[in-house]
């Protein structure tokens, strides 16, 4: 670098490792978790108050980006805990983690018995719409196909909700999934690389509905006092996203990591989730859910086991692509 002052300046704004004499716990998570308005800052403060340690969050895009970051770093990774994978990705990551050994009284719509991964929040994928523009939302994929609504979805290969939709159609329709995709194709306005672009298009009024979560309207109700957004519950059931954390098998802080996992299902962590991550907490906090969550849609749950999701991934991907590529 030509200018030494500038080089020094660049170094100064790159946060250096803390020199304090406490152990560090490195948690790899997705981007929106660590944002100022996300759960990260509050979780860090709450955990550091009890652990006599330094909790360091590192962020990489979303779930799939975290996974590829771990694979790129390989053995050299500093990560102790990975937080924010969903069940469509856990089978791929299973060999990298070890059993967490934490027992918790989970409030999930389904039974949970994965010894490697522990859920911290969950939500249903759903098509979100604006009640001022869509009076009677479709109540099933078939009704959506027969409507004249336009929908924005995300690419399954670069977005977790996009992949979730493929699994959703497969879980609901099995062998008929390809036909459903053929029917959906004309309703799909466009496919975006990530959730943000899709949701942005929806808010701009480009499309009538967007693939998001049943909890999305809670943000608008609580943060913006805007009650015009709602999510459609489908008769087939809506696909679940269960977000989980796991301890890396080659961590050098196994006890601290386990302590963190224990903390993750405690009230201190769980009560932060609803209004920062806009998802349902995996363990109901003592104070219950914030008021804005009461009016949200409560569909039936669909979820493929993690191994099945991994196995059929390429097949469902081809189904969706073939229908949309015509």
């Amino acid at each position: 670098m030509k200018n030494p002052t500038l080089a020094a300046g660049l170094l100064a704004i790159t946060p250096l490792a803390a020199f304090a004499d406490v152990p560090q716990l490195h948690v790899l998570t997705y981007d929106s978790f660590v944002a100022e308005w996300g759960p990260g800052p509050q979780v860090e403060a709450a955990f550091e108050a009890t652990c006599n340690c330094d909790l360091v969050f590192e962020a990489a895009g979303d779930g799939a980006a975290m996974l590829s970051r771990l694979m790129l770093e390989g053995e050299r990774t500093d990560t102790d805990v990975v937080l924010g994978l969903d069940t469509n990705l856990t089978a791929q990551a299973a060999s990298m983690v070890m059993p967490h050994g934490v027992s918790a009284d989970l409030d999930l719509p389904i039974a949970w018995d994965d010894a490697n991964f522990l859920p911290f929040d969950w939500g249903w994928f759903a098509f979100v719409y604006d009640t001022t523009r869509v009076e009677t939302p479709p109540a099933s994929f078939r009704e959506l196909i027969d409507s004249d609504l336009s929908v924005v979805i995300q690419d399954p290969r670069s977005s977790t909700p996009g992949l979730g939709l493929l699994m959703w159609v497969k879980a609901a329709y099995g062998d008929e999934a390809a036909a459903i995709w053929q029917g959906l194709a004309p309703r799909i306005l466009t496919v975006t690389p990530g959730w943000s672009e899709a949701y942005g298009l929806f808010l701009e009024g480009e499309a009538d509905m967007v693939l998001s979560y049943t909890t999305s309207p809670a943000y608008h109700i609580i943060a913006e006092e805007d009650e015009t957004k709602a999510a459609a519950a489908f008769e087939e059931g809506n696909y679940l996203q269960v977000e989980v954390a796991g301890i890396l098998a080659n961590t050098d802080q196994p006890e601290l990591a386990q302590h963190f996992m224990q903390f993750m299902v405690s009230d201190a962590f769980q009560s932060i989730i609803p209004e920062t991550n806009w998802m349902y907490p995996a363990v109901m906090p003592e104070g219950g859910l914030p008021e804005g969550f009461a009016t949200l849609a409560q569909p039936e749950s669909l979820l493929l086991p993690a191994e099945d999701a991994q196995e059929i991934r390429d097949e469902v991907l081809a189904e969706g692509r073939d229908a949309l590529a015509q």
Binding site: I13, T14, P15, D31, S32, V34, A35, W37, G38, G40, V56, F57, E58, A59, G194, W195, S196, E197, Y199, G200, S216, Y219, H220, A223, W278
Partner: peptide, 17 residues
């Protein structure tokens, strides 16, 4: 964390409604 540039931060805002 702590080295976000403006385009990244903008993307993050979009990603948080």
């Amino acid at each position: 964390t702590g080295s976000e540039t403006l385009p990244m931060q903008m993307h993050r805002l979009m990603g948080a409604y």
